[in-house]
Computed example of a mutant assay.
Amino acid sequence: MARPKTGDKPNDIRNATVREVAAIGSTAVSVNKIAKRAGLSVGTIYRYHKTKDDLLFWVFLQLKRDIHKTMMDAAGDLQGASLRLRAMWFALIEYGFNAPQDFLLVEMMSAETRPSFLENSELQAIQNEVLGEIQAGIDQRVLVNVPTATIETILASPAITLARRASLSGIQIEKEELDRIYNLIWRGIAQDH
C-alpha cells in the first residue's frame, strides 16, 4: 500500500532551498542538504527537479515572479511614470525587508551568470516590463532621454542595496530616509523642465 501524500512538497522544497542557500550560498548547497532541511528524501526532490541547477532555477524564477508581482501591484492603477516608478522602488525595498531570505537568494543567484537565466523567456518578459515602465517615463518626458538600462541601473542599485541592508539587519529603514534617498536619485534622472 502506498503512503498517502501529505503536505505541500513543492512549497517545502522551495522553503528549504531558500533557507539552505541563504545559510551557505548557492554553490555550496546540495540536494542532500535541501532534502534534509525539507524533511524529504533526495528521491522526492528529484521527482520534482532533474538536477540541482533545475531546482535552483525553479526557486529563483518563483521568487523573481513574487518580486515582480509585488512591484507591479504597488504601481497598480497609479497614473504617470513618476508615481508608478516610485511605488515600484519602495515595493522592492519592502519586499527585501519582509522576505529577507527570499530576497538574498535572488540577489545571490542574480550575480551568477547562468545561460538558462539569460535565455529564459519569462525572465526576459519580467525585465522588459520593468524597462517598459522606464520607457513610458522617457516617452512622457518625465525622465531624461538615455537608454532604459541606464535608468534601471540608477534606480535599482540603491533599492537593492537598501533592501539587502534591511534584510540582513532585520531593521526597516525609516520612511523619511527612504524618501530622501529616492528624491536624490530622482533628481538625477528626472527631465529638467
Rank of each mutant, 00 (worst) to 15 (best):
G7P: 05
D8P: 03
P10T: 10
A22G: 11
S26F: 06
S30G: 13
G43M: 04
T44R: 10
I45Y: 04
Y46T: 03
Y46P: 00
R47P: 01
D53S: 14
D54Y: 13
L56Q: 07
L56C: 00
F57H: 13
D66Y: 02
I67T: 06
I67W: 00
M71T: 09
M72T: 13
G80L: 08
A81C: 09
A81Y: 02
L83W: 06
M88V: 09
F97V: 06
A99C: 07
P100A: 03
P100T: 04
Q101C: 09
L105Y: 07
V106N: 08
S110I: 00
A111W: 00
A111I: 02
S116L: 02
F117S: 03
L118V: 04
E122I: 14
Q124E: 12
Q124P: 00
I126T: 04
Q127N: 07
G137Q: 03
I138L: 04
Q140Y: 00
R141M: 05
V142L: 04
V144Q: 01
N145L: 07
T150I: 11
I154M: 05
A159N: 07
L162V: 10
R164W: 03
L168F: 11
L168P: 02
L168R: 15
I171W: 07
Q172Y: 10
I173V: 15
D179M: 06
R180P: 00
Y182V: 11
L184C: 01
W186Y: 13
A190S: 12
